[in-house]
Design a protein around this nucleic acid. Structure first.
Lengths: 336, 336
DNA sequence: CTGAAAGCGCTTACAG
DNA sequence: CTGAAAGCGCTTACAG
C-alpha cells in the first residue's frame, strides 16, 4: 500500500477533497461531525499531507535555510542550536547547507534554496553584493550573519569583535602589561580582521607608546603553538599575548609551558570566543565571550520578522551581538 | 519583478516549457542552439527552478531528514558533520530536526517529513516499533542510529558501547586496578546502558572477585563532580573510576583534585567518547574514542543505498561502529 | 456547510 | 527536435 493522499481520505470519508483539506487545516467551514469522520478516515489510512504539494500551492515552506561555511566545532554547534531553538519556537523547519569551498558551490547552494525555504540565514565569505544579487532568489527574506556587508541592501547581524578586542586590550593594560602581542587569524577572515582592528584601536587610544606586535596564525591550535615558540625568542619578551581566538591561545600556552614559562606569572595569555574548553585548560583562559547561540537566535528573529511582514523595510538594519570579558587565571596576576 | 518561472523563460526564449525543462535538465532532446538560447534566457531572467514543484512531480526531494534528540555539543556537531559530508557527496540537502521532548512532538516532526525528504536518519528515544509504524511515512527509507531497535523492521547503526566499555575495564584491570567504580549515565539512555553492561560483563569475565560499584550520573559534568565527592567517602577507597562519558569523568577529576587526591597516582579516572576537551584536561583523560562522524557518514551511506535501490531489502541490517581505547595520563600509572 | 474546478511550477510520456 | 497536454497533491475562491 502506497502512502495515502488527500483523495484517498476523501473517498474513505465520502466527502470532497476540499472538505478534507478544510477539516484537517483547522476545521473552519465544516461541521463537527464531518470533520470527525474525516479525521477518523485520515487516521485509519495513516494520511500524512504531502509537504511539497502544500508548499507549491501555499507558497509557504515553513522552512528556513541556513547557509554556513561549516557545521563542525563549538562555534557552529552553538550557532545552529540558537537558530534551531528560535526556528522551532516559530514552528519552522531548518535546512542546513555548508562547506561551499568556492563561490560557484555557494551559488549552487543558494539557488537550490528557491522553493525550499521561506527565508535564509547566510554566513558566507563569498557573499558580496554582486554575488547575492546574482544568486539570491528574488524577494527571499535574508539575514546576513558575520558577513562582509553588501551596502545597505540586506539585513545583517554580527558579533562585536572590535569592541570585544578593545575590552581585552584594556584589561591587559589595566593590570599593567605593556608589550602585548597579537596572534592574527586567517588572512581575509572578517572576524579576525575586526579583532585585530580592536587591538590596534585600543593601543592607539590607551597606550600609544606600546608597540603593535603581530604574529601570524590561522585560528588553529597548531598555529598558536608556533606563535608561542616565536614569542619565546622575542627580546624584549612580550608580557602578554592576545590571540584572535581561544584555540590559538591554548596552543600558545602549550608552547610556553613546554619552555618552562609560567602563565600568567611570566606572560599573560588571552583568547577570544570562550569555547567550553577555555575553562578547563590550566590555567583557565581569560577570553571574550560571545553568546553565539544568541547570534543565531537573533538572526532568526530578524528573519522571522521579515517573513511575517514582507512589506516592512528591514534592509540596512545592522545589529551587533555584544561581547563580554571573562577574566580567568591566564591573565590573573599582574606582571612582576 | 517577481521570481521568473519556467513559463517566463519559455516566452523569453520563444519555445515551449517542455523544451526549457529539457534544456535545463541535461539538454537531451534539444539542439545545441535551442539549448543555448534557453540558457541565455534563463540567465537573463535569473531563473531558478522552484524546488517544491519539482519535488511534487519527480517524487524526489534530493533532501534527507535527520531527526536528532539535540543539535548541540560535540557529539551532535560531529554527527551532523559526518552526515553532512556524506550527504553532500551524494548531492543531497540536509533537513535537521531536534529536541522532541515527548513522543507527540517527535511524531509531529516525523510526519512533517512526508514529502520533504527522500529518506530519514533517525535517533530518538521515542522510536520504538509501534511509534515508527504509526508515524513514519510509509515506504520512506530510514536508518536508525543508536536507537532502541524495533525488531528487524529497520536498518540500524550504532556505536559499539558494550565493546568499548569492556576494553576500558580490561585496560584498568590490566594495569592492576581492582575496585573500579562505574558512574552511570541517564536512566533509560541506551548508550549509557550498553556501557554499563560492558563494564559488568568485563568484570564477570576477567575479575569475578572485583566488586560492581555503581554511582548515579546523568552525563553532565556536575553529576560527575558529585560522584567524585561520593568516591571520596567510600571505604575502602576505589582505585579506579570509569565514567559513562567524558564530561562526568572531567567533573569527577575536579572533585578529586579539590580534595587533594592525585590522579592517576591515587585513583585512575577514565571516560567514554573522547571529546576534544579530553586531551586538554590535566591529566589528559584516558577514554574510549568513537568516530562519531563515521556513525553519521555510514548511516548516510546505508540510507543512500536504500534510496538508490528501493527494491533491495535492507531491513534487519545492523552495523556497529567500532570503538577504540585511548590511553592518556589519567590512568597512566599503575596503583601504588 | 459542501463540492467542482482552477491552478501552484514543474516533468514526461505521447504525438508530430 | 519540439510542443500540447496530463498530472503530481494540495488549497482556495466561487457557486450552490
Amino acid at each position: 500500500m502506497a502512502t495515502a493522499t488527500i483523495k484517498d481520505v476523501a473517498r474513505e470519508a465520502q466527502v470532497s477533497v476540499a472538505s478534507v483539506s478544510r477539516a484537517l487545516n483547522g476545521g473552519r467551514g465544516v461541521t463537527a461531525e464531518t470533520s470527525q469522520r474525516i479525521r477518523e478516515a485520515a487516521t485509519r489510512l495513516r494520511y500524512m499531507p504531502h509537504a511539497a504539494a502544500r508548499m507549491l500551492i501555499t507558497r509557504r515552506t515553513n522552512t528556513i535555510g541556513a547557509l554556513l561555511p561549516d557545521l563542525y566545532g563549538e562555534f557552529f554547534s552553538e550557532l545552529i542550536r540558537g537558530i534551531d531553538l528560535a526556528a522551532r519556537a516559530r514552528g519552522l523547519h531548518l535546512l542546513v547547507s555548508s562547506s561551499h569551498d568556492d563561490a560557484a558551490a555557494a551559488a549552487v547552494a543558494l539557488r537550490a534554496m528557491q522553493g525550499r525555504v521561506d527565508g535564509l540565514l547566510l554566513m558566507s565569505p563569498h557573499a558580496d553584493a554582486a554575488f547575492l544579487r546574482q544568486n539570491l532568489p528574488h524577494d527571499l527574506p535574508t539575514v546576513l550573519m558575520n558577513t562582509r556587508l553588501a551596502g545597505d541592501d540586506y539585513c545583517a547581524l554580527s558579533v562585536d569583535n572590535d569592541g570585544g578586542a578593545r575590552m581585552m586590550v584594556e584589561h591587559l593594560l589595566a593590570i599593567g602589561h605593556q608589550r602585548i602581542v597579537f596572534i592574527q587569524g586567517p588572512p581575509g577572515n572578517r572576524d579576525a580582521g575586526e579583532r585585530e582592528l580592536g587591538y590596534r584601536e585600543a593601543l592607539v587610544s590607551h597606550a600609544p607608546d606600546s608597540p603593535v606586535i603581530m604574529l601570524r596564525g590561522d585560528f588553529g591550535e597548531e598555529s598558536g603553538y608556533r606563535a608561542g615558540q616565536e614569542v619565546l625568542g622575542m627580546r624584549p619578551r612580550p608580557d602578554a599575548v592576545f590571540a584572535a581566538n581561544d584555540m590559538m591561545a591554548i596552543g600558545c600556552m602549550a608552547a610556553l609551558r613546554e619552555a618552562g614559562i609560567c602563565v600568567p606569572e611570566e606572560i599573560a595569555v588571552s583568547g577570544f570566543d570562550d569555547v567550553p574548553m577555555a575553562r578547563y585548560v590550566t590555567p583557565p583562559l581569560t577570553t571574550i565571550q560571545v553568546h553565539i547561540a544568541e547570534l543565531g537566535g537573533q538572526a532568526m528573529e530578524l528573519l522571522g520578522e521579515q517573513i511575517d511582514h514582507p512589506d516592512q523595510v528591514m534592509t540596512g538594519i545592522h545589529r551587533r551581538v555584544a561581547a563580554k570579558l571573562v577574566v580567568r587565571g591566564s591573565t590573573g596576576a599582574a606582571p612582576g
